[in-house]
Design a protein around this nucleic acid. Structure first.
Lengths: 215, 215
DNA sequence: CGGAGATTACCTACCGGTCGGTAAAGTGTG
DNA sequence: CACACTTTACCGACCGGTAGGTAATCTCCG
């Protein structure tokens, strides 16, 4: 039970981080004042400051937690697959699954880097780069196996990421389609875009989706 | 010469809008103050207010201009193609081309809708919806022709859009790849994701891809 | 078990600073 | 002089953040 890991679990502190994450996700970092966050958790501003050191640290903690989520729910799961294609499929499906989850949608906050200090931004950017490299390496393996379209690997990586990240902008839980349906379709489109026709032909179509994050 | 059309051409007013667009694109709307914009165009704040009515109107004008760009450079060009596949290809390529252009990258500002008034946001959202519908209709036609993967059309639309929009976040003019290369690859990936194998096989205006050697 | 002192969990009141926006007084040019 | 333009001087509201105080609770010695 490290203090960091407990941040989002503990009663009061947890409520602060979860509430702040939601508000920042919905209104943007700059437009969310410490006063509003404090009110949302039934506290005054100094009361809030008893728990958090400052606005930047609050954002940094949330973004770090989002990266933890990504590592646990996507990278770790994908690494269980040794076949490059199945690994890529797991990446796309798990990441898409995460972003369409109400609790997990905060994972898109890792792009709100402008509110961070230089040092904090460097640390987050470093983790993001590691994730991007993980995808790129998977694509490199597919390339080596002749299963990838003749396109640049970096471009392919960001095309995949773009499709996944964009999900959080348009998908609505209450909408016409279920999360499962959308994740299935996005995975098919995403993989179809980077793989050769042959590689797609004989592929098993369902990979494991993780359960909701533990409470 | 309508006043609106001249906004981005006229000397002083044009400089204001172009400079503000660039600053908002780089720093975000909230983090860009009217004082900074004024300084950037060698004016005091009231001097700036002589030309613009307020911050929201400034953002709205820029976003309207961005939508004008999109309509002129993407929709109008794509409509010249009557074949659904060629039209879709034109959409992807033109939009990607626009977003990788230094001047056109402001087109991504159409997503900064939070800074708008309700009425302004409705108007921009309406135009965005029209664009999305344009893509969706094109996909519907491909579906009717049996050239589309068995995936939901809305999901496919946003997958395409996600890939394109994400370009503006990672593409760097000075990078390893040229705009032409990146646009080519994104188009191939994007189309490959939504089209059936057969539809891709007979693609005319893509560089003739030799079939990969079967295993 | 009692009571002194530390610790936790907040509060009221306020700081310096910046925000978007404006009133009103020039200033230069036709 | 008239008018397009630009300035100085200034709002009120809100920002992130803090000083200093306090009620409740927990700890530990005698």
């Amino acid at each position: 039970m490290s203090k960091k890991a407990a941040l989002f679990d503990d009663d009061r502190a947890g409520a602060i981080y979860r509430t702040a994450a939601k508000m920042i996700y919905e209104k943007g970092f700059d437009a969310t004042s410490m006063n509003e966050i404090a009110e949302a958790v039934q506290l005054t501003k100094p009361g809030l400051y008893y728990y958090v050191k400052g606005k930047k640290e609050l954002l940094f903690s949330i973004m770090s937690f989002a990266m933890d989520l990504l590592d646990a729910e996507v990278v770790a799961v994908a690494k269980e697959q040794s076949d490059a294609l199945e690994r890529l499929r797991a990446i796309v499906r798990c990441h898409a699954w995460l972003l369409t989850q109400a609790t997990g949608a905060i994972a898109i906050l890792i792009d709100e880097t402008r509110g961070l200090s230089d040092e904090q931004r460097v640390r987050i950017t470093e983790r993001k780069r590691a994730y991007i490299d993980f995808i790129r390496e998977t694509l490199d393996r597919l390339r080596a196996e002749g299963r990838m379209r003749p396109v640049d690997t970096t471009t392919a990586t960001f095309s995949l990421l773009g499709q996944i990240m964009w999900l959080a902008r348009w998908f609505q839980e209450a909408g016409r389609m279920s999360r499962e349906q959308v994740v299935d379709d996005v995975a098919e489109i995403a993989l179809g875009g980077v793989l050769t026709d042959e590689a797609q032909a004989g592929a098993p179509s369902s990979a494991a989706l993780p359960e909701a994050i533990p409470a």
